[in-house]
Design a binder for these strands. Structure first.
Length: 538
RNA sequence: GCGGGUGUAGCUUAGUGGUAAAGUUCCAGCCUUCCAAGCUGGCCAUGUGGGUUCGAUUCCCAUCACCCGCUCCA
């Protein structure tokens, strides 16, 4: 991104945030109390949009498949779950800051150093008479020049408001394998402070270490924990999947980019359990390969590719084509310890290309861990292959809120329209795919002071309402009503006029159907409206 | 968490140590035969808490939120 483009990028997001508030897509949480950092609410239109996204995901993931079933687990679970998953350990890393540069490090990742520590008790300033009694130390690695310590210390006191610091109380000390100093410049670090990325709470009215619990930082673990129960009741055979939509919570250090990184967010996750490669590959019958169709004996690599492909198709089905997405195959060294491969699906947001979904091949790490920590067998008995094993897993995991934000950014369009008199103005239009649009159709009587037209318009509204979200509006000029729906992203507008009532007999019981994107109008029979619109929103 | 910036109506902006202004949106009414028309009327604001002051939206301090950069990011 070039510097010249940056203001435009900010401007674009500001316009989007402003529209979100103006039209009721997204509000700041607790706004009347000044807001709360990292939390957002969905207004009327946002709630519909988000619901549509989740409904479509749920339908495509489980309702339209034989091999995936759903789960809706509790947010607070037994704390051992997070010990087994590794979150307790890795979500509470102690962090340290460099006192000079303010750079932050994970305390356990500081490389131990040996050398001479130079301690100072403070500094005074000959120029302006100021002084600092703050103690400070610098570690000079073995073999380095001692003057380096004084240089760093002077910089430190310069940062404390002194202009020409004279160092006080210098003394030295030999040190071996210390992790209290910044390896890059030798500066003293702050004391290690724990960073708890999991929200903590207490189960029951008494606060104690015994009843500490956590709000889940991801939905996936519930699926692994309930793997056996689901298997027992669903009559599924490996390969099969369990999917779930639900809230997760992370106490992010620094929420940013509108709703993109929030502390409370919703995930849509599938854990798809497959045979370990050694079983799948050995039993694969040669002739049983139908291109494009999932095969029970695929190895993890084929299943992983399959799910990447399925997910890309799904994004296209709600209006996010490949040209607005980016794909990133994580490199070996970037992979989480449990993952064999991960593909990120990214969207080109105005503030940068950012992840919407990760599709990970997780091996059998999670089931292994839960088997170990719970003492309960997580093994699956495969009748067909006559073997007992821990299934491996492919995990497509998507963030609902970031996807909704992507849809909003993608939909936002400004167009210059010119009217009959040659006057041009800007039209803001949210071009949501009709499948996710919050409101599917606006119904308008051309004039509200003609009771026959109003009555007919209400009939049309009632005809459409059982099938889709309808917004009825009779206030103001018709053009104004169209534009209002443009900003809401309503793909269709239906207007009832004098011809509907039979002013031209051949047009009796017809209406104008206005297309949001092209602003073109077509004459349609009322009786044809429902099937015609359903075809576009289904 | 650090540094910088910004907080006045739903939105965009004005302004002042002494009654807070406008456009737009929104609501109501009239009018109106297809793309933000017109007329009339109406609602709505100084982020929060302290301090200075006779009096603070204005000055000072703190705090909160948002934006940018760093940091962090399963």
């Amino acid at each position: 991104m070039s510097e010249a483009q940056e203001p435009k990028v900010n401007e674009q997001m500001e316009k989007i945030v402003s529209l979100c508030k103006r039209r009721g897509f997204v509000f700041q949480s607790s706004e009347i109390y000044g807001g709360i950092n990292g939390f957002w609410d969905y207004g009327p239109l946002g709630a519909e949009l988000k619901r549509n996204v989740k409904d479509r995901w749920w339908r495509s993931m489980t309702q339209q498949r034989d091999d995936v079933v759903g789960l809706d687990a509790s947010i607070i679970m037994h704390p051992k779950i997070w010990e087994a998953s590794g979150h307790t350990a890795t979500f509470s890393d102690p962090m340290v800051d460099c006192l000079l540069t303010k750079k932050r490090f994970r305390a356990d990742q500081i490389e131990p150093q040996s050398g001479t520590i130079y301690h100072f008790t403070g500094a005074k300033d000959e120029g302006n008479g100021k002084a600092s009694s703050e103690a400070y130390s610098v570690l000079v690695a073995t073999g380095k020049h001692p003057e380096h310590a004084r240089k760093i210390a002077k910089q430190f006191y310069l940062g404390r408001g002194l202009t020409a610091p004279e160092l006080l109380g210098e003394r030295t000390e030999e040190e071996v394998n210390s992790t209290r100093f910044n390896p890059e410049n030798g500066s003293l670090l702050t004391e290690a402070r724990p960073f708890n990325l999991m929200f903590k709470t207490f189960v029951g009215p008494v606060e104690s270490a015994d009843n500490t619990a956590f709000l889940r930082p991801e939905t996936a673990q519930a699926i692994f924990a309930q793997f056996k129960n689901v298997l027992d009741v669903s009559r599924q055979k490996v390969p099969f999947g369990i999917c779930q939509i639900g809230k997760a919570f992370r106490n992010e250090i620094n929420p940013r980019n509108f709703t993109f990184r929030s502390r409370e967010f919703e995930q849509m996750e599938l854990e798809f359990f497959i045979k370990p490669d050694e079983i799948a590959v050995k039993s694969a019958p040669e002739a049983d390969v139908t291109p494009g169709q999932p095969q029970p004996n695929w190895g993890w690599s084929e299943w992983h590719k399959y799910w990447v492909d399925e997910r890309i198709k799904w994004y296209a089905s709600i209006g996010l084509d490949q040209d607005c997405l980016d794909f990133y195959w994580q490199k070996k060294e970037e992979l989480a310890h449990y993952a064999k491969a991960t593909v990120d699906i990214l969207y080109k947001f105005p503030f940068g290309t950012q992840e919407l979904e990760g599709i990970a091949a997780r091996g059998n790490f999670d089931l292994t861990q839960h088997q170990k920590f719970s003492g309960k067998s997580m093994e699956y008995f495969d009748e067909e292959d006559k073997s007992r094993y821990l299934p491996h897993v492919i995990e497509p995991s998507a963030g609902v809120d970031r996807l909704v934000l992507a849809l909003i950014c993608h939909a936002y369009n400004e167009e210059t329209v010119t009217d009959d008199k040659g006057k041009s103005e800007t039209r803001v239009v949210m071009k949501f795919h009709p499948r996710v649009a919050p409101i599917k159709v606006g119904v308008f009587p051309l004039l509200k002071n003609r009771p026959e037209i109003v009555k007919k318009a209400m009939e049309v509204r009632d005809l459409l309402r059982p099938h889709m979200t309808v917004f009825y509006d009779e206030a103001g000029a018709i053009g104004r009503r169209y534009r209002r729906q443009d900003e809401a992203g309503t793909p269709f507008g239906v207007t009832i006029d004098f011809d509907t009532l039979g002013e031209k007999p051949e047009l009796l019981d017809t209406v104008t159907l206005r297309d949001r994107d092209s602003m073109q109008q077509t004459r349609v029979k009322i009786s044809e409206l429902v099937p015609m619109l359903l075809e576009k929103i289904r």
